[in-house]
Computed example of a mutant assay.
Amino acid sequence: MEEIKLDKPLETIIGKLESWYDAFISMLPNMAMALIVFLFFLVLARLARKVFSRLFEKTSTNKALESLFSTIIYYTVMGLGLFIILGILKLQTAVTSLLAGVGVIGLALGFAFQDIAANFVSGIILAFRTPYLIGDIVEINGITGTVKGTNLRVTIIESFTGQETYVPNKEVLANPITNFSVMKKRRIDLSVGVSYAEDLDKVEEIVLEVFNSMDGVIHKDQMFFDYEEFGGSSINFNIRFWIEFPAGPGYLVMKTRAIKAIKVAFDKNDISIPFPIRTLDFGIKGGKTLSEMRVATEGDEKTDTGA
């Protein structure tokens, strides 16, 4: 049986390990320098982000835009440090390969993470357009609440029931946005019905007097009263009035106060808000009046059935 010689392979492996060891030893000063440079650029990136945030706060209150630019500055500084570190470690070929691969990787990630990319781009657009600010009360895609935060991926809305909803920026940009805080006011439309027997001019006068004297109602010259329709059991009217929003008492609070005030004023002036009722008219053509109709008795029922 032929003897297997391991001397040459072992020498080759040992020689390779020794060369790697020598290269590692010779690279220690460069690696130490690279570590120092890394720590320097890490501190520099954080400092640059903090300085930019402070300067930006003096010129704008747009938190989303501040977050966008501070993040870009941070990663730009760190990227510059990465290329310098690769140069110190004499990995110039890695730098070239990295630059060449950035485009390929970006293209692949664009296809693989289309939703993430769409949310990121939408976040940038929203940061520049600023349709809302932190603390604004908004309605987005059927979700109503207070904007608690926003970043390059989602907008955080806290509903009035206390739940946080994370709305992707792509959905925010693609749907109508209602911002209740921009105009600093909100209109309340209240529908009420009164009896057909009431004096409509008197009803209007009483309602307008109620709202002209109510605290929290603003722009009283823009208050509008209109009769809407002949309802099934009442004549229905609308009263439309403005309140401060969201700085005032609140939409639901003012609506409750308005309903109470109308009820008190109507009770004081003997104006009735009728229950839904239905009137049966037996005097129509071809029918009989109620007085002409005979109520069947037990005896009649037995006669009809032949008992």
Rank of each mutant, 00 (worst) to 15 (best):
residue 99 L to Q: 07
residue 99 L to H: 06
residue 100 A to G: 04
residue 100 A to W: 01
residue 100 A to K: 09
residue 101 G to C: 12
residue 102 V to P: 01
residue 104 V to M: 14
residue 104 V to I: 15
residue 105 I to M: 14
residue 106 G to T: 01
residue 107 L to Q: 02
residue 107 L to D: 00
residue 107 L to P: 00
residue 108 A to R: 08
residue 108 A to N: 10
residue 109 L to D: 03
residue 112 A to N: 04
residue 113 F to R: 13
residue 113 F to E: 07
residue 113 F to H: 07
residue 114 Q to Y: 04
residue 115 D to T: 09
residue 115 D to M: 00
residue 115 D to C: 03
residue 118 A to G: 04
residue 119 N to W: 05
residue 121 V to Y: 08
residue 123 G to F: 00
residue 123 G to E: 01
residue 123 G to V: 07
residue 124 I to Y: 14
residue 125 I to S: 02
residue 126 L to T: 03
residue 126 L to W: 14
residue 126 L to D: 08
residue 127 A to E: 07
residue 128 F to Y: 15
residue 129 R to G: 07
residue 131 P to W: 08
residue 132 Y to L: 12
residue 135 G to L: 06
residue 135 G to Q: 10
residue 135 G to P: 12
residue 136 D to Q: 12
residue 137 I to L: 12
residue 137 I to P: 13
residue 137 I to H: 14
residue 138 V to F: 04
residue 139 E to T: 13
residue 140 I to W: 11
residue 140 I to M: 02
residue 140 I to Q: 06
residue 141 N to R: 13
residue 141 N to F: 05
residue 142 G to Q: 04
residue 144 T to E: 15
residue 144 T to G: 02
residue 144 T to P: 04
residue 144 T to M: 14
residue 145 G to L: 05
residue 146 T to M: 14
residue 146 T to K: 14
residue 146 T to Q: 12
residue 148 K to T: 11
residue 148 K to V: 05
residue 148 K to E: 01
residue 149 G to R: 04
residue 150 T to G: 00
residue 150 T to L: 04
residue 152 L to I: 09
residue 153 R to T: 02
residue 153 R to W: 04
residue 154 V to S: 07
residue 154 V to A: 06
residue 156 I to Y: 01
residue 156 I to F: 00
residue 156 I to W: 01
residue 156 I to C: 07
residue 157 I to Y: 05
residue 158 E to G: 02
residue 159 S to D: 03
residue 160 F to C: 06
residue 161 T to G: 01
residue 162 G to C: 07
residue 162 G to S: 02
residue 162 G to F: 12
residue 163 Q to L: 08
residue 163 Q to C: 02
residue 164 E to W: 08
residue 164 E to R: 10
residue 165 T to I: 15
residue 165 T to K: 11
residue 166 Y to K: 10
residue 166 Y to C: 03
residue 166 Y to N: 05
residue 169 N to E: 01
residue 169 N to A: 00
residue 170 K to Q: 11
residue 171 E to N: 11
residue 172 V to F: 06
residue 174 A to C: 00
residue 175 N to G: 11
residue 175 N to I: 10
residue 177 I to G: 09
residue 177 I to V: 15
residue 179 N to V: 09
residue 179 N to D: 12
residue 180 F to T: 02
residue 182 V to R: 03
residue 182 V to W: 02
residue 183 M to H: 12
residue 183 M to K: 03
residue 184 K to I: 09
residue 184 K to A: 13
residue 185 K to W: 02
residue 188 I to N: 05
residue 188 I to A: 03
residue 189 D to C: 08
